[in-house]
């Protein structure tokens, strides 16, 4: 780890102040996991004390299996050129996260997007409710349980002319008389 001197130093200073888990992922990349209530203080600390003044990106991942959303804040220090990725998990059935657009203005855009696409609430967030979508009355579309393919089938009509398409596997199966048992079907080509 001697190669990652600067990275380890930042990580240590974060660990001294906050209760976090973290590691140096690779060159210039520090990844930490924090509790949702600590995120804004960590970001403020990084911005004001450690020179991470550039908010690179905020991302959101739906981990539906664990019933959680993961928010990732990526901040960058223009002097040391290090990147810190702050991960936090919030409950999927109670999707509320602290608004950080007072720290970085452009976070407002991300938060409006996540409000619309994932249904995460950011108390105190200013800005039009409709950002990307218009008259949307379904579940937030970026959630994993929103089936976009089904939505397309329900919403749009298909042009006629393609009904005679066949499935290769089925065509062969029919010709040869093979019977595929149900437990094997999920391994067939889709």
């Amino acid at each position: 780890m001697s190669n990652f001197k600067k990275e380890t130093k930042i990580l240590k200073s974060l660990k001294d102040v906050f209760e976090i888990k973290g590691s140096v992922k690779s060159d210039k990349r520090i990844s930490i996991k924090a509790d949702k209530k600590n995120v804004s203080s960590i970001l403020l600390f990084l911005k004001n004390q450690k020179g991470f003044i550039h908010l690179n990106h905020i991302s959101c991942v739906d981990w539906i299996e664990q019933n959680e959303f993961e928010l990732v804040y990526i901040v960058w220090n223009p002097k040391t050129r290090l990147t810190v990725m702050v991960h936090t998990r919030i409950k999927r059935d109670e999707p509320v996260m602290e608004n950080i657009d007072t720290i970085w203005d452009q976070a407002n855009t991300y938060e409006r997007e996540f409000r619309e696409m994932f249904g995460i609430e950011f108390p105190g967030l200013i800005g039009a409710k409709e950002f990307i979508l218009e008259d949307w009355d379904n579940i937030p579309p970026m959630r994993k349980d929103f089936n976009s393919q089904q939505y397309a089938i329900d919403t749009f009509s298909t042009r006629p002319g393609r009904e005679n398409a066949q499935n290769v596997r089925e065509a062969i199966q029919k010709r040869s008389g093979e019977e595929i048992p149900d437990f094997a079907k999920k391994y067939s080509r889709d």
Partner: peptide, 8 residues
């Protein structure tokens, strides 16, 4: 490539 030609 799961085509199934082999099964026949």
């Amino acid at each position: 490539i799961s085509c199934g030609l082999c099964t026949e």
